[in-house]
Design a protein around this nucleic acid. Structure first.
Length: 171
DNA sequence: AACACGATTTCG
DNA sequence: GAAATCGTGTTT
């Protein structure tokens, strides 16, 4: 059993955290009271007020509020009226950054991922450092990975839409 | 109060 | 290629 990732892990720049989450173990408590373990295989970094692809760049609102706090908390939001996206806040307090979970070994795609985990708005603000129902443990591995432009954010324009802030674990 | 739109998925 | 579907932020 791995060690749970702590506050210090998340309170760093999102460009350090996002790739380091690859290969780590996402642990989720199921309705039956049993925990399931999923391997994180794909992430994306959203980096602060300057990054026009980051929701926080549009300003501080009730929805984006959690991103302005300390790292380790979940930022959940609904997209296209049907898919919940799961992100974990990174960076020091006051610096709005988050990592979008885009894939697990068991489910590819951010929408499929949240459906598999059965997480939605009820997990907005959940603290991965202290939660009893969801957290991340170190697997002890640092897998090789590839990078590429983030998906679905062309509207952000240059240079943001081309920043290689999508991280995929190599097979 | 009305409107525009999105960090996606699924089906044809 | 296009529909599904609704919370959020913006405009009226």
């Amino acid at each position: 059993m791995g060690k749970r990732l702590d506050r210090a892990f998340y309170n760093r720049d999102v460009l350090e955290v996002a790739p380091q989450l690859l290969g780590q173990h996402l642990v989720k408590l199921g309705p039956d009271g049993k925990t399931s373990i999923f391997v994180i295989t794909e992430t994306e970094a959203y980096r602060g007020g300057e990054d026009l692809a980051c929701h926080a760049s549009k300003g501080r609102t009730p929805r984006t509020e959690v991103m302005f706090g300390e790292g380790g908390y979940l930022y959940m939001y609904l997209i296209y009226g049907m898919h919940w996206m799961m992100n974990v806040v990174c960076g020091d307090k006051g610096i709005p950054q988050a990592v979008l979970f885009r894939g697990l070994r068991e489910a590819s795609g951010p929408g499929r991922l949240t459906r598999l985990l059965d997480v939605d708005r009820a997990f907005y603000g959940e603290d991965l450092v202290s939660s009893e129902r969801i957290w991340i443990e170190s697997s002890g591995s640092s897998p090789a990975f590839s990078t590429g432009p983030r998906v679905g954010i062309d509207y952000a324009g240059e240079p943001w839409k081309n920043m290689p802030w999508r991280f995929l674990m190599n097979v």
